[in-house]
Amino acid sequence: MTRYIIIGAGAIGGGLGGRLAQHGHRVVLVARGAHLQALQRGGLRLRSPDQDVRLPVTAVAGPEEIILSDEDVLVLSTKTHQAEAALTQWADVPVISEGRTVGTAGERLPLLTALNGVTSESLALRYFDRVLGVCVWMPAVHLEPGEVIIRGVPRSGMFHLGRYPARSTTDADTELLDKIKIDWDGSEFEVLLPADVMPWKYRKLISNIGNAFQALIGPNGEFGRLVKAASTEARQVLEAAGITVTSDAEEAQTRSDSFTVRPVPGTPEVLGGSTWQSLSRGSGAVETDYLNGEIARIARENGRTAPINARIAALARRAAAAGRRPGDLSADEVARLLGL
């Protein structure tokens, strides 16, 4: 029976792992600090529009606390700026079969990259032979230790999965993807298996362009026009680089067919995305260098510039390092700093 090792049990990893455990699948959540202690002490509290449940889960701090086997599937769901540290931690862990070591995790086990951005897949190939990209659409929030809030109904979220790169797909990959689809579809998610997952991930990247603005400004002014300017710049950069992006119409239709977002009883009225959550928790770092900063990188690599995305990435990076909270800047201040 497949066991899912969720490396990074925050909003996405905790929500995914919690739902899988709730529906009878073998799951190990990898967490740290107060969150790990809460999971080990009282299980995972999973809150959604229709449920408030506490689930017994297996939670560990790292690979030294479990024994890996060929039945394991690793799911990387950290923030992108934390991904390389996690990859190096897990790649060389021995895989045991019938009491003997048969290889390492990097050699033997599939790794799913369930995190934002488009960089983790190529990062993972430095360490893992078999990488499967995951495009995540899941309205989930992790603010308190031991707790994840999921706001999607009737499905908790939607995932596009595929081998990376797509041309590497084997019959074994197809079999594994079909198995994952069965397991995750049956755990209140929807899994789609496109021929190539990366156009979906680039479309999600465009959606994540607004994360930095939401995190920095919060309720402190209307920032829609700023997001539009940054998104337009991002689209121009991707088009100039010849990168294929799933169309807005296809993405919107697919997502609306899967879930809608509803409030969760007893939770704050305002709940933001991943970058907003990082600032709210005072984590000291954010992933926007791999979102807006990714657009800047692609632009520079192709002899162009992306000043709006480069500047907002820098603002978010500095805000996190300084311990600022959502809404510490106004929309007018950010517009001035971006020259808009």
Rank of each mutant, 00 (worst) to 15 (best):
G221C: 01
L271G: 01
A38I: 06
P268R: 04
A11P: 01
G303H: 07
N208Y: 08
L143N: 04
I150L: 15
F223N: 14
A140D: 05
P63Y: 02
V148A: 07
E190G: 05
P145C: 03
P326Y: 00
N220G: 05
F189G: 03
L36T: 07
D183T: 10
R26W: 09
M138H: 08
A172R: 12
V334Y: 10
N292T: 09
F128W: 07
N302S: 14
Q214P: 01
V27Y: 00
V237S: 05
E121Q: 10
N292H: 10
R304N: 11
A11I: 00
W90A: 05
D332F: 09
C135P: 02
P94W: 09
T169Y: 09
A331W: 04
A306K: 13
G146R: 04
L143D: 02
G284N: 02
W200M: 01
I7Q: 00
D257N: 15
F223H: 15
A166S: 13
D289P: 04
S274I: 04
P49F: 11
S156F: 12
N292Q: 12
T101K: 15
V131C: 13
G146N: 06
W184Y: 14
P154Q: 00
D257W: 12
L226Y: 03
A296S: 14
V134C: 14
P49N: 10
S187P: 00
G224F: 08
W137L: 11
A320E: 03
A285K: 12
T174N: 15
L29V: 03
G133W: 07
R108S: 09
I206Q: 12
E269W: 11
I206W: 13
L55W: 05
G99C: 00
T170F: 07
V131S: 12
D92S: 14
D173A: 12
A299T: 09
T113K: 11
E188K: 05
A229P: 06
L205W: 02
T174K: 15
G221W: 04
A310Y: 06
T113G: 04
H160W: 15
A331Q: 04
A34W: 00
A172F: 11
H23A: 07
G218L: 07
T288P: 04
G33W: 01
I6E: 06
V153K: 13
L44C: 03
G146H: 04
G186M: 06
G10H: 07
E239P: 08
